[in-house]
Amino acid sequence: MTTLKQATPVHTFLAMLARDVRVLRREMFTFLSRTLMQPLFFVFVFAYVMPRIGGGDGFGRVAGVSFATVLVPGMLSTTMFISGLMAVTVPLMMELSYNNEIEDRLLAPAPVWLLGLAKISSGAVQALIGALVVFPVVYFVHESAQPPQIDLTDWPLLTVVLVVSSVLSAGLGLLMGTMLDIRKSNVLFSLVTVPLTMLGCVYYPWAALQSTQWLQIAVLVNPLVYSSEGLRTALTPAMPHMPTWSFLLVLLGGTTGVVWLALQSFARKVRR
């Protein structure tokens, strides 16, 4: 009986992650289909079907490389972002509405910020799993004459960009989940996820926007841009990309800021 009361916040934190893993395992099929379908069909149409229609060469060559090469980092970054965001925002909005299910977590013996951090961590793990399962799909699905030219040599940079981006996406998810009302969730996804991905340097490298300079500057407010460019630098260094220091600076600084803001917002939201 006395041992129970010695539970440290770390125990609580780990138990919450364990709970999320249990739920994820049960809903693996839903998770995989939600994560995989969009990138799978996207690369199928744009890296396989379209090049064949265009005679194998005409469609989507950017800076002399195949469109598949552009898509691999882009699809990875966008999958991570959407997975991380959704993994935190959707359950949180449910827990905050109707029955105030969030109370279940708030009563656990840990400070409120740690409960928010558990949500971010769990979302980040789901974002990473999303990236891992999508990689083979975007790597192997393409027109045979136009394979993506991937150069998997800079492992440290790849790891840093993947981890930081996953935390950033989950942090944004927590921030959005605490700021937005579930009744407006439909609008949210069309207003947030569509511009995020379309203008996130997913389908084109940032450097290619120099022909439309106002847009090249405007997209800099989009966090996904830095994640896409980071992965582009790590995976397809031959493509034009942002300088390494710039996206690392924004990713690290932005993630710290977003996580801090999200934890504040979460604490304000749940403590009446």
Partner: peptide, 26 residues
């Protein structure tokens, strides 16, 4: 605490609701 609303974890079974609550408490 037993609150007025049903705040059980909808994504878990009855047994899991109990077990995870226990694990939250160490």
């Amino acid at each position: 605490v037993v609150s007025q609303n049903n705040t059980l974890d909808r994504q878990l079974t009855v047994r899991e609701n109990l077990e995870f609550r226990g694990r939250f408490f160490g």
